[in-house]
């Protein structure tokens, strides 16, 4: 089928794009290093260039690929599960809920910033939020129910986080947590990669296996079940994996929204809208988007680096509104 060649080409193009952006990510920064030297410094000792590239920029590049990829595939899987192009972990309030879990652990002193307890708490927070939204809106719920439930849960988690911050005994902690919540990949080390990678890779692997079920869900839950799909298990896997991905991302990089919402939209028309074949290109597009955003925040001239979560929200919200505007007829119909 010509579609396959198209999907293959798409994956190859995105791969090349990611490689180019990854190299740019190693080269760009306060001390610019030419790309060829950055590549050389990665594999052989080039003095201070090697220290900058390996210690500072490599973890950041790896985290952008891992987190962006996970956000992308999570968005694609949630949109497939709920048959709704507005679904995404961030629309479900998952980053806020994950942040709440992490904040509770950090600022009430249960664990340090590099403990595995942190991602686990964040994952638990995300699991509760996504599980709640899917339970409320999943079966028959339309777009309006979905967005409203996500908004409510996100707001609640945000308010609880604010409460936790305001009760925090340490004033420095308040500044630190607020900046962390904005989302950033600055000053991350290989320890952060090691902390998050197992969860992120597991989340991606779980979601990759749901492709055929998501494709069958195009026909609705009953028809999918009649085709032999275990709809309940699919729902559980997608929710759990999305929570793993959102929780692990938030634990090391703070809240980065809208990448998961946008990435599937960019690739879907190129794979004939097939929910199964949207998964891998969405992951790659998400990785490319986050790498590009992380390069962009280093290039924007400002005193302190613009937070990547702020940038993705600034760019993502207009896209979100554009999708809503395109589906306005359906939304109005659902309210009436």
């Amino acid at each position: 089928m010509p579609l396959d060649a198209g999907a293959g080409r798409l994956v190859a193009c995105l791969g090349v794009l990611i490689a180019a952006l990854a190299l740019a990510s190693l080269a760009i920064g306060p001390a610019p290093i030419p790309p060829w030297l950055a590549a050389k410094a990665l594999v052989s000792d080039q003095g201070s260039a090697s220290i900058i590239v390996r210690e500072i920029r490599l973890p950041r590049m790896l985290l952008a690929i891992l987190i962006g990829g996970t956000l992308g595939i999570t968005g694609a899987a949630l949109q497939g599960l709920l048959r709704n192009p507005l679904a995404d972990a961030s629309v479900f309030g998952a980053p806020q809920a994950a942040a709440l879990g992490a904040v509770l652990v950090l600022y009430f002193g249960f664990a340090g910033a590099l403990s595995f307890v942190l991602p686990l708490a964040a994952i638990l927070g995300a699991l509760i939020s996504i599980g709640l939204v899917v339970a409320i809106a999943g079966r028959e719920g339309g777009t309006v129910v979905l967005v409203l439930a996500g908004l409510a849960i996100g707001s609640l988690a945000g308010a609880a986080t604010s409460l936790a911050i305001s009760l925090s005994p340490n004033p420095f902690a308040i500044t630190e947590i607020v900046f962390w919540l904005l989302g950033s990949l600055e000053d991350r080390s290989m320890a952060h990669v090691v902390l998050s990678a197992p969860f992120l890779v597991l989340a991606c692997a779980l979601l990759l296996g749901t492709g055929p079920a998501l494709r069958a869900l195009t026909l609705g839950e009953e028809a999918a079940a009649s085709l032999g799909v275990n709809v309940g298990r699919t729902r559980l896997v997608v929710v759990a994996a999305s929570a793993l991905g959102a929780g692990a991302s938030v634990a090391v990089a703070g809240a980065i929204g809208f990448v998961g919402l946008i990435a599937p939209h960019l690739v879907r028309p190129l794979v004939a809208h097939d929910p199964a074949r949207t998964l891998v290109p969405s992951a790659l597009a998400g990785a490319a988007l986050l790498l590009a955003a992380d390069c962009a925040v280093r290039l924007i001239p400002s005193g302190v680096e613009v937070r990547i979560g702020v940038l993705t929200a600034l760019l993502g919200v207009p896209v979100f509104l554009w999708i809503i505007a395109r589906r306005r007829g359906e939304l109005v119909g659902a309210v009436a």
Binding site: R83, T218, L219, G220
Partner: peptide
């Protein structure tokens, strides 16, 4: 099934 649901514009 009766509902005739098709969520995505699959060929």
């Amino acid at each position: 099934p009766q509902n005739g649901e098709v969520s995505w514009p699959l060929p």
